[in-house]
Design a protein around this nucleic acid. Structure first.
Lengths: 158, 158
DNA sequence: ATTATTTAAGGATAATATTCTGTTATATTT
DNA sequence: AAATATAACAGAATATTATCCTTAAATAAT
């Protein structure tokens, strides 16, 4: 039987997805509880898979990766093997941090983080265009980012 | 004078962006050092802003948010005040986790995480269409996600 | 070569994570 | 509704880590 979250679990998730360096003590205090149940709940949330992992989010601009690019891609063939091969190869490109199969005007939508436009061009020439069955490619160059978060809306559960 | 990363710093960042629950002890062992320098370097990386924050990544599907949608949006007016107002209002929508000003066929590219298509439609009707100056809207419904990470490519620094 | 400056090592301390036990509340069964 | 089983909590004890401090080694500057 599936484990169902209560509001306390939701609050813990809300806190941790904002700042996972929070201590159980600090969370316990905020929620008016002791550390034991908070600790146990967090462990359960991890074990049950509600928490996928803990990561450090880096400042990509400071690390020299200033350009975000989205690409809408159309493939020429759509057999299962084409699609699988495409995704497999995309997974090997560290520049690509997201690859979504979509419905609409493209087959795939990619998100890339690269140094600059020049590096983007280099990626296209040396990597992307080597993929077979590639159809149309449309680039969306990010000029600025107005919002960027990984926080899931949990208000429904709170 | 700007602080420049060495390879040890890059390795630490690479480790932490994969798993920030790693202890300094564990990292120290992996890099053949003691905990003190690792600890100090991490603190410096935080202070200098290379590490933005630590977060828990949640399993959105398990939390009932199964649908990812991208939206290409065109505005009717492009004065500064239009754009600023648009971004400000977008920031108030928890469904929208990313909002990028882009060049190309759209003005903005949005990424949303919602329960399902129905919830997406509800978002459009009750929230998006209330925005003034809205021009064309194109939806890209995600069918499946072949890759999704937050890990920045640090190979250049290693 | 000599002197600063930075970086690491090693150990000490403080804080937190983790475990354990007894208790209370909640739910289930009869 | 009473009895029983189950789950959640509080509080304390222990194990690990984080954090700080001092000294030594390494690197850079003079």
């Amino acid at each position: 039987m599936a484990y169902v979250l209560d509001k306390t679990d939701a609050k813990i998730l809300a806190i941790l997805q904002k700042d996972s360096s929070r201590t159980t003590k600090s969370i316990a205090k905020e929620l008016g509880m002791t550390t034991s149940p908070i600790f146990e709940r967090i462990k359960k949330l991890e074990k049950e898979g509600y928490i996928k992992k803990y990561v450090a989010l880096l400042n990509h601009k400071k690390l020299g990766l200033k350009q975000i690019v989205f690409m809408g891609i159309t493939l020429q063939g759509h057999t299962r093997s084409y699609l699988e091969k495409f995704v497999a190869q995309i997974n090997g490109f560290p520049e690509v941090i997201e690859c979504h199969r979509v419905s609409g005007n493209f087959d795939y939508l990619l998100k890339l983080v690269v140094e600059d436009i020049e590096a983007y061009e280099h990626f296209i020439i040396t990597k992307l265009t080597l993929l077979p069955y590639l159809g149309n490619v449309q680039s969306l160059i990010t000029l600025s980012t107005g919002k960027a978060t990984n926080e899931i809306d949990l208000s429904r559960l709170l």
